[in-house]
Design a protein around this nucleic acid. Structure first.
Length: 216
DNA sequence: AACTCGGGGCA
DNA sequence: TGCCCAGAGTT
């Protein structure tokens, strides 16, 4: 790699190459149903897509309104989502959030970071995903373990905390790219730039990466 | 800052 | 088997 190249230019090339590698990342950026996306995202913490998809398919067939989630017996909701991790907390999060949607937001998913964060069980990452994918209104970049690790390896940010890494990324990348960076990096992080034994031999951005396959 | 919830993936 | 994971609330 060339070390004199401005970091903004290298970051732009990285995003471009990852978009080429994962073309589906663009087409599915905007979700059709904000409420279902919100529930699916709450369910997705520490769980696989397969687990979440199975549960949501059943859930949205059984419960068709925000009110039905808000009023069902909590034990029933727990058993309906039994196959995902943290199912007891998530059942409470979902019910409380739906009650708050009805009480505070006329039954609609709010469109600002502040309002989303006021929902019980909705934190910064969930709010970011909903803002990005449901409304295309990005207010930041959710830095999870994948984004954090990849940013260090690519030397896009050597920040010690997720907040610091997010600040660096927001300076480096144009705002129009913020929404897609998460999905690109996470897909890339799961498939290639893994925490251990990264597949550098098949990496599409190897030429832009200073990482020497050391274990950090 | 550390702890807790929890089933599934992976070595 | 043991370790880790697209997280958030509580203490």
């Amino acid at each position: 790699m060339t070390t004199t190249e401005p970091i903004e230019l290298r970051a732009m090339k990285i995003v471009q190459l990852l978009e080429d590698t994962y073309p589906e990342s663009r087409s599915t950026l905007i979700a059709s149903n904000p409420f279902e996306l919100l529930i699916a995202t709450i369910l997705s913490a520490q769980s696989t897509d397969a687990q979440v998809n199975k549960v949501t398919a059943y859930l949205f067939q059984k419960y068709r309104t925000v009110e039905s989630f808000a009023t069902v017996a909590i034990r029933q909701l727990e058993s309906d989502i039994f196959t995902v991790g943290y199912y007891r907390q998530k059942a409470r999060y979902i019910q409380k959030t739906c009650q708050m949607l009805i009480h505070n937001f006329s039954g609609k998913v709010p469109r600002t970071m502040k309002e989303l964060l006021s929902l019980h069980g909705v934190g910064r990452k969930t709010a970011n995903i909903v803002l990005t994918r449901a409304f295309g209104a990005v207010e930041g970049i959710a830095v999870d373990t994948h984004v954090f690790r990849i940013c260090r390896r690519l030397e896009l940010s050597l920040g010690q905390t997720p907040d610091k890494v997010e600040q660096d990324l927001m300076k480096i990348l144009p705002q129009e790219n913020w929404g897609i960076v998460n999905r690109l990096f996470i897909t890339f992080g799961r498939n290639i730039c893994k925490a251990r034994n990264p597949s550098c031999d098949i990496c599409p951005i190897l030429s832009l990466c200073p990482f020497e396959k050391l274990d950090t």
